[in-house]
Amino acid sequence: MIEAKNIDFYYGNFQALKNISMKIEPKTVTAFIGPSGCGKSTFLRIFNRMNDLIKDTQMEGECLINGQNIYDKSINIDNLRKDVGMVFQKPNPFPKSIFENVAYGLRVNNMGDKSFIGQRVEESLKDAALWDEVKDKLNKSAYELSGGQQQRLCIARALAVKPSIILMDEPASALDPISTSKIEELIHNLKNQYTIVIVTHNMQQAARVSDNTGFFMLGELIEYSNTKKMFLNPEKETTQNYITGRFG
């Protein structure tokens, strides 16, 4: 359960998020949509404190995950990020073998011995629907894979440390339609085990994969509701205009 309360976020003097509150239920897929620069990615990166890496930023408000404020001083950021995995817009495997890419999170968190790691790598690759394609070349460089395979490898990498939440920042925007549909299928299957939050540019994608959708514009959360309702019968006119393609 993720609960954001009155979040404001600033890049220098620019306010990127304006008083956003939202609840995300466990084991659901939530999509964030909105035009470029609306703050949806910034908001996503609140949940694993990825924005901390950007200099000269400031956050106000509270973000609770399972009841605990992740911006509290007592929080260990590394543990938080282990629990809140992330998949990025561009596939970004490490310059290592396929196996080592998936094992990375386990190794840096000192999780398990050799046989455990081997087992978990296989599990994760299976969960990411990549196992059959790579099982014979686990020691080959991850860069030998196609873009779509690389992105699924990145998903497997995120799954390996067993997070409870997976954040996806436009995970299919750099991929071809076939790879995109594979990722969407994967998201559908992962929903049973994980809470997934996905940022997407593609409204059809949001409609296909998500249970709930949040529509952002100019740093504000305009509307947040059940996906079906949002696409069939939005409450606000701006939402209506956006999803019917009048702007954006």
Binding site: N48, M50, L53, D78, N79, L80, R81, K82, G85, M86, F88, N92, P93, F94, Y104, G105, V108, N109, C154, R157, A158, V161
Partner: peptide, 9 residues
């Protein structure tokens, strides 16, 4: 970011 997002220090 990928590394940090996996909980690496």
């Amino acid at each position: 970011e990928a590394s940090l997002a996996l909980g690496a220090t």
